[in-house]
Amino acid sequence: MDSILEFIVGRYNYWLYILLMMIGLYAMISKNNLTKKIVGMNIFQTAIILFYISIGFKKGGTIPILEHTSHAVEVSHFVNPLPHVLMLTAIVVSVSTFGVALALAIMIYREHGTLEEDEILKCLEQ
């Protein structure tokens, strides 16, 4: 019983991120409206960001800001800084790509007067 509980507690965060990721993926592939697709892409990115941050965590570790006085740094006392760095840039880049995606959506709306995918395809066939 205890081993099952430990198994669940050690992994349930990954399962939640997979769930979030799949919500984003489903929105991206099945929704008809382009804005909803873009929102799905953002949910997908958020899941990946949470996953990376979760990888970097160490039990009992604190934020990776050292003290000037300490001589030998005990590595297990500080969480892994590398995923934080990667996700720090990824968040800002995801906001920028979101802006570009919205700009493309506005251009499509200007051209076809709609954001529904099937109507756009019908427009293109004519």
Partner: peptide, 9 residues
């Protein structure tokens, strides 16, 4: 989750 000896760390 939170393993200090995980490969990433």
């Amino acid at each position: 989750w939170g393993d200090p000896n995980s490969p990433a760390s």
